[in-house]
Each structure stands twice: as structure tokens, then as C-alpha cells.
Nucleic acid binder design. Structure first.
Lengths: 233, 233
DNA sequence: TGTACATCAGTGAACGCGCGTTCACTGATGTAC
DNA sequence: TGTACATCAGTGAACGCGCGTTCACTGATGTAC
């Protein structure tokens, strides 16, 4: 079914609204996004916007959903376009792509992972599947690395710490993803470690100590893999 | 010199304003703090507040300075009240105290490390010394651990990665703190890793995967030390 | 192909609200002699 | 100890602004016959 002119124009307008919203957030922060400046920027009355989004929260939800999907796209793309078949190389590419996306889209990353917006809560049925998508990319590669014996974790790190076993088990059941508990544990560990690097960089906290934050992130990624017992070239 | 009744009352009022500001931020977020609700909560006219803080930004600055100092207090206190003389035990206590402070003061932590507040920038001459204080606690213990040979870092982690040497060197000169580059590098690494864990916990991102976030944090702290080559009991 | 009608895009005034800050003020507390 | 004065705490109206959303509307685009 082809798009009518009207449908096409509608889609364009929606994208324009989103783009302007992102731009305004880059200047005024994510937590104070408001409809009126968007309308002004578009040379349109405020109420015109309500033809496209039921209210401000609906616009936020659309932006957040876009962001999670774009991030997952970037990660999947990094995995699939890595020349080597080595899952270690693929994982490296995916983790690098994760930060690249965040640094190239600081406001979008902030909208998803920064302060909650007062009075707004993202509907889980929208966000959870999108988050799971990007998580699956990393965890799939970790599982493959473990199964193929490409990593030999040291004794203190070759098992899920006992107090965490229950929680990890519950999570695996809930999302029904067939993967070992250790792979999930490694994925969470890596996520939280790299998340900190990205957040500190995004808000300029780490720059006074580290000049080259790209090199710093890469060093952290290498540490992560070394500590899992992966042999890097 | 003793405080007059008036001075004492003034101090009390300032503390009351701050406490109410913190409470309001815990409900409405840090980025939308405003003067009028504070005044309302105190059953005072808005303009009364301006006797105590020149404007909203001055109030924010005071809150942020308090936070950094309280955090440094908590860390110094953990170091000094650790029974053992072992710097490894002291470092463990300090790192645990760091998270405890964040979890017990989520809004304060968010104010210092979360989204920047639109239109506001904390004056560095206030924040930098306060941040340095808490950094010094951790890095001093790391340096002692290294000097006393209590940690034998593995080959991939016993030196600052070459692309980072320059930046680390500059930072050491700037702050004039007599410590080895490797100690600073370890401190930054630990900071960024644990920062991620805390941020994800604070905004409820990690809870679906990890039930016991205290145990998770402790596992991360142990990993951190293991990877530095510290022998833990 | 032409026309009547339905749908959609966008307008503009208004409501009720909240914001930081200004200004000129009143009354209470402290101080100097 | 008493009094005149200075300082401080707090008030209340007003300014000019921005916000999300309501309502009733006009004009353009598409569709059915």
C-alpha cells in the first residue's frame, strides 16, 4: 500500500517536530521540554502540534522509543558489519558503537538514561522491548565467546556471586532469553562499568582528569574483556 | 566569639530553607527547583527567602557545595573509623561508604552528578576543591596499597595506557597532588566503573536484572580490587 | 470528469496556573551612648 | 537603666513572562458516487 501525499506530509511533519524537540532539548535540557517553543520554531500555532501528538508526554514517549531503537540499530549494525567472524572482535565493535552513539547523540542518551522527567513516566511496554533489543546484541556475543572457550575467566570471576544468583535467574526467566547466568552477569557488569564512563564524559566530569576520552573508553573496554579472561591480540 | 541569638536564628533559617529545597527536589526533580514552593512550605512570603540567598542560583550553589562536602566527610569518616590498619580494608570501607551516601541521599547525588540544570553552572572555585577532597581519600589509599606492594597489577594493567599518559600527567601537575600516575589512573577507573553502578541503581535501570543491588555493588568493588592485583581474604 | 461531502491541518483566543525578581514598605531586634 | 538609632526579618503587590490544554473555528485535501 502506497502512502498518500497526505500521509507522507504527515510523517514529515512528525519527524520535523521530533527533530526540533531534540534541538531544543540540546539547549534547554531534557527535563524542561515544552510545546510552545517547538511550535514557534515551526512557525505554527501551538495547537497544530496536538494534531500529531496527543500531549507533551506522548511526544516524550515517541522520542524515547526512537532513541532506544536507534541505539539498538547502531549496535546491531556494528556487530553485522564487523569484517571478522570472531565474536570477540564483534563484541569490541558493539561496545565501541554503544559509546559512539551516546557521544553523537548526547541529548538522546540523556533523555533515556539521565534524570527522570518530573511528572512523566515512560510506559514500560514501549521501552522494555527496545532496551532488551540492545542488551541482546551484547549478551549474545558474550554467550558465544564463553561457549566457544574464547574466554577463560579467572577463579574469582567464573561464577555468578551467590547473593546475585536468584535475581539473575529471575531475570532470565522473565525475558525468556536462553543464555547462561554467567553471560548475563558479565553483560550487566560490563554495562554498568561502561555506563559510568559515558555518563561522566557526557556531563564533563571526567575531562579534567582524562584528555583523550575515546582512548580512555577503549582502555576500559579492553580491561573489561581482559578481566573476563579473553585473550586479546 | 559567640553567636548572637539573631545569628543563630539566621543559621537555622538557612538550614530550614536548604532542607525544604532538598525535600521539594525529591518530589519534583533537581532541575525544576523553584523559590515559591519553598516559601509556601515555610509559610513565608517568597521575598523573605531573598534575605538568605541572593537568588535561586545561589541556593543551588550552596546545596551543591554542601553535598560534595558531606560526601567527602562520609568517605573520610569511613577511612578513619575502619578498625584495621590495612589500606585495602580502608579502601573497601571508603568505596562502600561512597555508594551508601549516594543511596541515602539520592537527590543530592543527582544534583551533583545528574543532568545539568538549564541556565545554571556551578562555580568551579566552589565545587572543584570539594570534589578533590573526596578524590584524595581514595587515591591516597590506592597509592599506599601500591607502595607497600599490597597489589601486584597484571601485565595489561600495571601501567597507564600510553594515549592517556599526557592527560594524567597534566592533571597531576594541576592539582599538585604527589601521587603516581598509576594510582590516579586506578582511581579514575574505579570511579567511572562504580559511578555507572550507582547511576543505574539510582534511576532504577538495573533493578530488573539485579535483585540485591548492595551485593551487586560489593561484587563490583571486589572485582575492581582483584583486577588491580589486590589479594583479598 | 464533476460535485457533494467527509476528513484532516492548522488557527487564535482564552483559561488558570506558576515562575523569578523589582520595589517600597512595616515591624522587630540589637547596639551605642 | 533608658532612649535614639541602625540594622535586620519579613510582607505584599506588581511586572512581564512562560506553560499545557480547552474550545470553537476556517480552509485545504481527499473520497465516493
Amino acid at each position: 500500500m502506497e502512502k498518500t501525499r497526505r500521509e507522507q506530509k504527515r510523517e514529515d511533519t512528525i519527524n520535523e517536530i521530533k527533530a526540533i524537540a531534540r534541538h531544543l532539548m540540546s539547549e534547554g535540557g531534557t527535563t524542561t521540554l515544552s510545546m510552545r517553543p517547538i511550535a514557534a520554531e515551526m512557525r505554527m500555532s501551538v495547537m497544530g502540534l496536538y494534531r500529531y501528538f496527543e500531549n507533551r508526554d506522548a511526544l516524550l514517549t515517541a522520542l524515547i522509543a526512537d532513541n532506544f531503537n536507534a541505539m539498538a540499530d547502531a549496535m546491531e549494525n556494528a556487530r553485522d558489519s564487523e569484517r571478522s567472524d570472531d565474536p570477540v572482535q564483534k563484541l569490541l565493535a558493539v561496545l565501541i558503537a554503544y559509546r559512539s552513539w551516546a557521544i553523537e547523540h548526547p541529548v538522546d542518551f540523556q533523555l533515556n538514561y539521565g534524570n527522570p522527567i518530573p511528572g512523566y513516566e515512560a510506559p514500560p511496554e514501549i521501552t522494555v522491548p527496545a532496551v532488551v533489543r540492545s542488551f541482546v546484541v551484547a549478551i549474545g556475543l558474550i554467550e558465544e565467546i564463553l561457549q566457544r572457550g574464547l574466554a577463560i575467566p579467572p577463579p574469582h570471576y567464573d561464577h555468578v556471586p551467590p547473593p546475585l544468583e536468584a535475581g539473575i535467574g529471575t531475570a532470565l526467566e522473565r525475558y525468556g532469553y536462553p543464555v547462561s547466568p554467567l553471560a548475563l552477569y558479565f553483560a550487566v557488569t560490563g554495562w554498568s562499568q561502561l555506563h559510568g564512563v559515558i555518563m561522566l564524559e557526557l556531563f564533563n566530569h571526567i575531562q579534567p582528569l582524562i584528555e583523550d576520552s575515546t582512548a580512555y573508553y577503549e582502555a576500559q573496554v579492553h580491561n573489561l574483556l581482559y578481566n573476563m579472561g579473553v585473550k586479546l591480540p
